[in-house]
Amino acid sequence: MSNKSYFNPDDLKKFGNITEFQEELGKKFFDYYAAVFEDGALTKREKSLIAIAVAHTVQCPYCIDAYSHDLLQKGVDEESMMEAVHVAAAIKSGATLVNSVQMMNHVKNVSM
């Protein structure tokens, strides 16, 4: 059976191959990426929890797979993972709802 879907989980393993078409920029990206996720003012664990939240907001299935696995390896419990996603969901829904003020403003401006 042919696999004609836009998302193929196996493609995640080929992520490193993006250097094939532009080596210098690809390498710079991966160096930067690795540095971002090192311990700093935030721990690796905290950064991975931010990553899983952002992965949901940008709706990247590769990132969701990668950081779910990474968080399991880091010993993070399911409750913490889901709370991180709720933070992302709250910001997303908040961002939608806060724009409703503009809708209300407009409605009020043109209404008698």
């Binding site: 721990t43 690796k44 664990r45 696995h69 399991l72 390896q73 880091k74 010993g75």
Partner: peptide, 18 residues
């Protein structure tokens, strides 16, 4: 500690502290 599933353990020191 050994993982409860098909994944590898993370950094031992971090896991110990958690």
């Amino acid at each position: 500690y050994n993982p409860a599933g098909a994944f590898l353990p993370g950094d031992q020191a971090d896991l110990e502290s958690e």
